[in-house]
C-alpha cells in the first residue's frame, strides 16, 4: 500500500503524456476530439427523450435542462446556494488541511509518535464519514456544523496520509547532512522535511478538495443544510426533473473547476519540483 502513494495521482495527469504532447497538431486534434465527445453527449441527451427511447419524464432533453439552468441563473437564491456550498467546502477544507499538515509533520518527524499512532490511524481512516451523519443531525441539525463535521472528517485523512508518506520520503543523505551541519529540529523541518513533503502535501490537498465537495453536497442533500444539495432534494420532491438535472450539472462543473484550480495551484507551488518541471519542459 505504501509503495503506490501516488498511483491515484497518476490519473490526474501527472508526468509527461506520451502521444498528446508530442507535437502541436496532435494536441489540437485531442482538444477537438474532446469537444466532439462533449457535443456528442449533449446531442445524445437531446435525442434520446425526443425519439421516445427514454421517457422525457426521466431524462429531459438537453435544451430543457439548459432552459431550467438559465432560469435558475437569474435567481439570487441559486447563487446563494452555490455560495453556501463553497463556504462549507472552503472552511472544512481549510480546517482539514491545517490540521492534517500540522499533525502529519509532527507525527512524521517523531519516530516514536509515528509508531504509536500507526494502528490508530489505520483504524480510524477507513471509517466512512457518512457514518457520522446521524450524529451530525443530532448535534447541529441542518446547520453549517453538520457540513463541516463531515467535510473535515473525510478530507482530514486524505491530507494526513499524504503528509505522512511525504515525510517518509525525505532523502536520508540530505537529512544527515543537515544534522552534521548542526541544523536544529525546527530548521530541519523547514529546510529538509517540508520541501521533500511538499509534492505529497499538494497531492493530499487536491484529493481532499474533491472529497470535501462530495461531502459538502452530500450533507446538504441528506441532512438538508442549505446549499446545492438541499436544492437538489427540493427539486426531487417537487418532481422538477429538468431543474434537478440542471443542478446536478452545476455540481459537476463545480467539481471540474475545483480539480482544475487545485492542479493550477499545485503546478505554481511545485514549479521547482522534478515531477512538474519535467512536464513543463516537455
Amino acid at each position: 500500500m505504501t509503495a503506490v502513494p501516488d498511483a491515484g495521482a497518476a490519473t490526474a495527469g501527472r508526468g509527461p503524456r506520451r502521444g498528446e504532447r508530442r507535437s502541436g497538431p496532435v494536441r489540437g486534434e485531442t482538444l477537438l476530439l474532446g469537444l466532439a465527445g462533449l457535443a456528442a453527449l449533449l446531442i445524445l441527451i437531446e435525442v434520446l427523450p425526443r425519439t421516445g427511447l427514454v421517457s422525457a419524464r426521466f431524462l429531459p432533453p438537453t435544451s430543457r435542462i439548459a432552459a431550467a439552468l438559465a432560469d435558475q441563473a437569474r435567481t439570487a437564491e441559486f447563487w446563494r446556494a452555490i455560495g453556501d456550498t463553497l463556504v462549507g467546502w472552503g472552511i472544512g477544507l481549510a480546517i482539514a488541511v491545517v490540521a492534517g499538515v500540522v499533525l502529519g509533520v509532527l507525527i512524521g518527524a517523531v519516530p516514536l509518535l509515528r509508531a504509536a499512532t500507526a494502528s490508530t490511524i489505520e483504524f480510524l481512516r477507513p471509517i466512512p464519514s457518512v457514518a457520522l451523519i446521524p450524529l451530525a443531525v443530532l448535534l447541529y441539525a441542518n446547520g453549517l456544523g453538520s457540513v463541516l463535521l463531515l467535510v473535515v472528517y473525510a478530507s482530514f485523512w486524505q491530507v494526513l496520509i499524504q503528509v505522512l508518506y511525504g515525510v517518509q520520503d525525505v532523502d536520508p543523505v540530505a537529512e544527515e547532512t543537515a544534522r552534521s551541519y548542526g541544523l536544529g529540529a525546527w530548521a530541519r523541518i523547514r529546510y529538509v522535511l517540508w520541501p521533500a513533503a511538499m509534492p505529497y502535501v499538494f497531492t493530499g490537498i487536491r484529493l481532499a478538495a474533491a472529497v470535501a465537495l462530495v461531502l459538502a453536497v452530500t450533507a446538504q442533500l441528506v441532512i438538508g443544510a442549505p446549499g446545492l444539495g438541499a436544492k437538489i432534494a427540493v427539486a426531487q420532491t417537487s418532481n422538477a426533473v429538468p431543474l434537478m438535472y440542471a443542478l446536478i450539472v452545476v455540481t459537476g462543473v463545480l467539481g471540474v473547476l475545483i480539480n482544475l484550480a487545485a492542479r493550477v495551484v499545485e503546478r505554481r507551488f511545485l514549479a521547482w519540483h522534478q515531477s512538474v518541471r519535467g512536464e513543463v519542459a516537455a
Binding site: V214, V222, G229, L247, G255
Partner: peptide
Amino acid sequence: RRVRAVAEPVLEFFRAIPPPVLVPVIML
C-alpha cells in the same frame, strides 16, 4: 488514442459529479 481523446473530457465530468447527487436521478 482517438477513443481516449473523445471520451476523456466526458469521463472527467462524470467523475467530478459528487456521486450521491445521482441518487435522485437513479431513483427515477
